[in-house]
C-alpha cells in the first residue's frame, strides 16, 4: 500500500518514517528545496534548549529509508480520487498514486506588517521573534544604529487573540517562546533590562511554568500585564510604547531600544490550497477541522484524507511529532480496513 504525504516539515517527516517502518510505501512531497519546514528558521527549542538544527538533521536523516520517495520543490496541481485511490499530479509532471493522503502542510507565521500600529517595517528597531532567532544563530544582537540594546521589550499576542487581525485564536507557543528568547537574550546581554508585555501567561507544557519562574528569579526578566496599544519612534530610533499596566490600573509609557513582536501562527497558504482542492473543512480558528476532537484527531470530513501536525491547530514540536505518530497509526488502521 502507498501513502501520499504533502509537506515535509517535522510532522510529514515523522509520519513518513513511521509508515515506512511499518512497511508502507511513502511518497513525500515538499514545495521547498529542502525538508524541515518552519524548523529551518529556529535556533533552540524549549523547554530543554535542544538545537533545532540537530533535531531537523535527525528527522531528515530518517527520510533515507528505502520505502520513502522524497519529491522536493514539488507542489500538487491536481488531486483526484479514482476507484478508492488518490491520484496526485505534481507540477514537475509526475503522477503519484496512493490509497491514503496525509496533509502535513503546517502553519505560517503572522505577517507583522498587518499590525501596522506596532510599526513593523516602519520603525527600524521593531523585529519579529523569527528575526531574533536568526540573531541568536549568528550570536549578534544590536540595534539598527549598531548599539547593544539597553532595554528590550517582547510583545505577546501579535496577530493572535485579536479580532482586528481576524485571528481569534491563541497561538499557544508564543508565550513560552518569549520566555525562552528572553532568557537567551539575557545570556548575551547581562546588563540589559528585558520586559515581556503579555495578556495572559499561557505556560501549558511540562517544564514551561518552571521556565517562567526561572526567567523571573534567575534571569531577571520583568513581566507587565497589558497589551501594547501603539508604538512610535523617536529621533534616536528608539521605540516609544504605550500600554496599560493592568495589574496596577494605570497607563504606562517607556522607550525601548529593541522591540520584539511575538508573531502568531496561521494556517499556511499551502495547507489552505490543499483544503480547497480536497474539500476539507476549516474550523473557526482558520485551521483544518479534525473529524472529532477526542476520537478522530487525525481524520477529516473526507474519507481517506488525514491530517498531521500544525495544519489542524497550533502545536509545539513535541505535540507535532506525537500527532504525526498518531496519524501514522490511524492511516495503518485505515489501510488494513480497505484491504479487506
Amino acid at each position: 500500500m502507498s501513502v501520499i504525504i504533502i509537506g515535509a516539515g517535522p510532522a510529514g517527516c515523522e509520519a513518513a518514517y513511521q509508515l515506512a517502518q511499518a512497511g508502507e510505501k511513502v511518497e513525500l512531497i515538499e514545495q521547498e528545496a529542502q525538508p524541515g519546514g518552519n524548523l529551518n528558521n529556529w535556533y533552540q527549542l524549549f523547554p530543554d534548549r535542544k538545537s533545532a538544527q540537530e533535531l531537523n538533521r535527525q528527522l531528515i536523516l530518517r527520510l533515507e529509508h528505502p520505502n520513502i520517495r522524497l519529491h522536493l520543490g514539488c507542489m500538487p496541481t491536481k488531486i483526484d480520487r479514482r476507484e478508492g485511490r488518490f491520484e496526485v499530479q505534481l507540477n514537475d509532471g509526475a503522477l503519484l498514486t496512493g490509497q491514503a493522503l496525509l496533509i502535513a502542510g503546517g502553519f505560517q507565521l503572522f505577517n507583522a506588517h498587518r499590525k501596522e500600529e506596532y510599526g513593523y517595517g516602519i520603525y527600524e528597531n521593531v523585529i519579529t521573534s523569527v528575526e531574533l532567532e536568526n540573531f541568536f544563530t549568528n550570536q549578534r544582537i544590536q540595534t539598527s544604529t549598531g548599539q547593544l540594546p539597553k532595554r528590550v521589550g517582547f510583545i505577546h499576542c501579535v496577530g493572535s487573540r485579536d479580532e482586528k487581525t481576524c485571528n481569534f485564536h491563541c497561538s499557544k507557543l508564543c508565550c513560552v517562546t518569549a520566555v525562552k528568547q528572553a532568557i537567551e537574550l539575557r545570556e548575551i546581554l547581562p546588563e540589559a533590562e528585558i520586559l515581556c508585555f503579555y495578556m495572559d501567561m499561557r505556560m501549558f507544557g511540562p517544564g514551561y511554568e518552571e521556565m517562567y519562574r526561572e526567567a523571573q528569579e534567575k534571569y531577571r526578566i520583568k513581566f507587565v500585564r497589558g497589551r501594547l496599544s501603539e508604538a512610535s519612534e523617536n529621533k534616536a530610533k528608539q521605540v516609544l510604547i504605550k500600554a496599560e499596566d493592568t495589574l496596577i490600573g494605570k497607563p504606562l509609557k517607556m522607550t525601548l531600544d529593541l522591540m520584539v513582536l511575538m508573531v502568531g501562527m496561521e494556517l499556511s497558504a499551502g495547507s489552505r490550497q490543499l483544503a480547497e482542492m480536497t474539500g476539507i473543512e476549516k474550523a473557526t480558528n482558520g485551521f483544518l477541522r479534525v473529524k472529532d476532537p477526542h476520537f478522530a484527531t487525525n481524520e477529516t470530513n473526507q474519507k481517506g484524507i488525514f491530517l498531521a501536525g500544525s495544519c489542524s491547530s497550533p502545536m509545539n514540536l513535541t505535540d507535532t511529532l506525537t500527532d504525526a505518530r498518531s496519524a501514522a497509526l490511524t492511516i495503518r488502521e485505515y489501510l488494513k480496513h480497505i484491504d479487506l
Binding site: D245, I248, K250, P251, L252, K253, M254, T255
Partner: peptide, 9 residues
C-alpha cells in the same frame, strides 16, 4: 489631576 501615566523612563 496629576498625570496618571507611569513615566517609566
Amino acid at each position: 489631576a496629576e498625570a496618571r501615566v507611569i513615566d517609566y523612563d
